[in-house]
Design a protein around this nucleic acid. Structure first.
Lengths: 71, 71
DNA sequence: CAGTAGGGATAGGGTTCA
DNA sequence: TTGAACCCTATCCCTACT
């Protein structure tokens, strides 16, 4: 099974589409969000699991940081 | 999170096991290598991340040094 | 089989200190 | 100042479950 050759950081556009998608379809609807913004996410070959991971990262409380609701 | 009390240089045995492990399991299979040679790496409490860092140091091109394939 | 959740592993930039 | 060892964490993978 092939691993990705290298890590591809998410772009600001990808992050914005993910957050808009969560507003539109709800948390956990990764496949729906991926399809709705497929033109954006296909560029870097993102999967529904990638979107789940990005959301987890965007919403997690960083060390020594106050919690702020994200969506 | 606890920082290590002191820096522990890698032994020659540790370096040999790492390079053998890379031949056996491939670059990036740090957890597998750690487990296969656990008797060696447990001595100084090495982690999979430690092995990744060691490999990076062993294979990196030093200043003013010609590049030589390492594995 | 497709999808999601959560734990775990890896990659690569950063940091420390001798 | 360089470099070996160590840290940080975004990204990616594995597996159980539905």
């Amino acid at each position: 099974k092939m691993r990705r050759a290298k890590r591809i950081p998410f772009t600001e556009v990808e992050k914005e589409c993910l957050l808009k998608g969560v507003k539109k379809f709800g948390v956990g609807s990764w496949a729906k969000i991926l399809d709705h913004y497929r033109d954006v996410f296909q560029v870097n070959d993102r999967s529904n699991v990638n979107l789940k991971d990005l959301y987890r990262n965007l919403t997690k409380v960083k060390a020594g940081e106050e919690w702020v609701p994200r969506i």
